[in-house]
Design a protein around this nucleic acid. Structure first.
Lengths: 234, 234
DNA sequence: TGGCTGTGTCAACGGTGGTGACATAGGCTC
DNA sequence: GAGCCTATGTCACCACCGTTGACACAGCCA
């Protein structure tokens, strides 16, 4: 028997499915993203994907070894979209800030997919390009290699962590989503000042702040702390 | 028919299972946590839980409406364990560091539950206690209220974001988990220095660093940046 | 002692990801 | 253009998942 999955470049026979669709890895990834965006993360099953494609579910396994393989392709596609059109300016703080905010925004645009993909290491083209750009920015800024790597790690994982956290909030069913926000007014804002003095003193500020993403400020803090560790310029 | 789930205080008939085990919410939660800890994340299924309990899987549904209900109970237990035994020292940096590392560790210990719980605002007792402790620490340190709230937000979301990210990595099926780690050696360490000079220059450092959690260092960066914003002491 | 009912068990449902066998059509060679 | 090879789509399965309705029985109360 031949290998079930044939690498894309070697594919030649574009045999249409019963419903006349010509499959490809690209089409499957796009369809999966659309499926997840429209019907939520739980809609991403091989059977539904097959139906959305107009093909037998098992046809997907001609293009991806497993659903996990497909998920990694989704993850890399998201990273690629985040970097689309980005260009280095030479100002390391501005560059890192831009990359961080772009990653965050790209994942927010597909919260359901972000939830599934944010924590994977794909090792694929788009991810590699992003790693090269970030580490390059840090090294050009003057960070010694060990420090550049540590800051890279903190930067990337913090961006992905916030992206996943904020995506998870967006991906909640509307009812649960507003319920989570209402907790700040319904529960925290009503605590007794004698038992919870600090929450009581800051309740209004808390309620307002928790409605926003904490990422931009956290990113600024990370950049501040990184700048502290930059060896003094000549 | 009676309600399937009867509230704990009203339970009276402690009828043992065929294998002689007397069930309770507490026993089920403990068993579930042990199951995750001993046999990996994927071991937490109702069927396996039933087997571990020495009961029919469906008996679990006499105590929890669904697996999600069970997971929320696990989450509450986790928050409690993270705070167990913690005491403020008066040194705000040491206190915040301890809280952050405790939250991270508690979630890491039970990745499966952490994944589903990290992004929810419960408004329950343990969560409220943690919020009060963190904001109190910041205010006592001398941060003005608006700054205290912003730093609180960044601190908490950073902790939960990393906790979820790292938990997700642990919760992966073993195959995907080792695959993700292997990517650094199999893919990044072999890139050509002419096309990817920065990755090539730091490949060894990267491979080593990415095997660890980025959280402790990111937390240190956040504390550094926060200290910068502390109004000068008299 | 007898009845009520909470609780454990059983069987079943529709779903999941995944695989081996098979038919067929696309593209190559001649 | 004919004919072969085989990549690819399809089908029939598998084992497992969460969940539920029906049922039997055991523990408690009267």
């Amino acid at each position: 028997m031949t290998e079930r999955v044939v690498p894309e470049p070697q594919r030649r026979r574009r045999r249409p499915t019963k419903q006349g669709v010509v499959l490809s890895r690209e089409l499957i990834v796009e369809t999966a993203l659309r499926l997840v965006g429209q019907h939520g993360a739980e809609a991403l099953t091989v059977r539904r994907l097959g139906a959305a494609l107009g093909a037998d579910p098992s046809a997907v396994y001609r293009y991806f070894r497993s659903t996990d393989d497909l998920l990694l392709a989704l993850a890399d596609e998201l990273i690629g979209r985040a970097q689309q059109g980005w260009k280095a300016t030479g100002d390391w703080r501005a560059d890192l800030r831009a990359i961080g905010l772009r990653i965050h925004a790209a994942y927010q645009a597909h919260p359901q997919a972000a939830l599934l993909a944010a924590h994977r290491t794909t090792g694929r083209a788009h991810e590699i390009a992003a790693v090269e750009a970030i580490i390059g920015t840090l090294r050009r800024a003057g960070f010694p290699d060990p420090e550049a790597v540590r800051i890279y790690h903190a930067f990337v994982d913090q961006s992905l962590g916030f992206a996943a956290l904020d995506a998870a909030a967006l991906a909640l069913p509307p009812a649960a989503q507003s319920a989570d926000l209402r907790v700040w007014q319904a529960s925290y804002a009503r605590l007794d000042a004698t038992t919870h003095p600090h929450i009581a003193a800051t309740a209004d500020l808390l309620t307002a702040d928790m409605h926003r993403s904490g990422y931009p400020f956290a990113l600024e803090l990370l950049l501040d702390a990184a700048a502290l560790r930059l060896p003094a310029a000549p």
